[in-house]
Amino acid sequence: MEITVMQAILIGIACWLGSCENAQPLGIGFSDALSRPIVGGTIVGFILGDVATGITIGAAVQAMYLGQVLIGGVATADMAFVSYPSIALAMLAGADATVAVTLAATVGVLGAAVFTGYEILCSVFYSLGDKFIANNDIKKMKLTYMVLPPLTSFVIRFGITFSIVMLGSAYAADLLAAIPEIVLHIASVLGGILPAVGISILVTYTLKDFKFIIYFLIGIVCITFLELNMVATAVVGMCLAVMYYMFIGGQNESTTQQNDDDVEEDELL
Rank of each mutant, 00 (worst) to 15 (best):
Y118V: 10
M230Y: 07
I9C: 14
K142T: 11
L48K: 00
A59C: 11
L128R: 07
V235C: 00
T42A: 15
G40N: 01
A77I: 15
S19H: 14
A97D: 00
M246G: 01
D78W: 07
I218C: 05
G117C: 12
I87G: 05
A173M: 07
E21T: 10
C20D: 12
M166F: 05
M230D: 04
A77N: 11
K211V: 13
F247D: 03
V155T: 09
I156G: 06
G117L: 12
C15K: 00
K131L: 05
A23Y: 15
L121M: 11
I213Y: 10
E2Q: 07
G117F: 10
G237S: 13
L228M: 15
G237Q: 05
A23L: 12
F81C: 02
N136V: 02
V74W: 12
L151K: 11
K211Q: 05
Y205E: 13
W16G: 04
G45T: 06
T53I: 14
E265N: 00
V109T: 15
V51I: 15
V197D: 04
T256S: 08
V235T: 02
D96H: 03
G49P: 01
M141R: 08
A90C: 14
G249Q: 00
A113Q: 11
T4D: 05
I9W: 10
L217D: 10
P195M: 02
S169W: 00
E181A: 11
V101Y: 00
F212D: 12
Y244K: 11
G18Y: 01
A93S: 11
G49T: 06
G72A: 08
K139A: 15
P25K: 13
A170H: 07
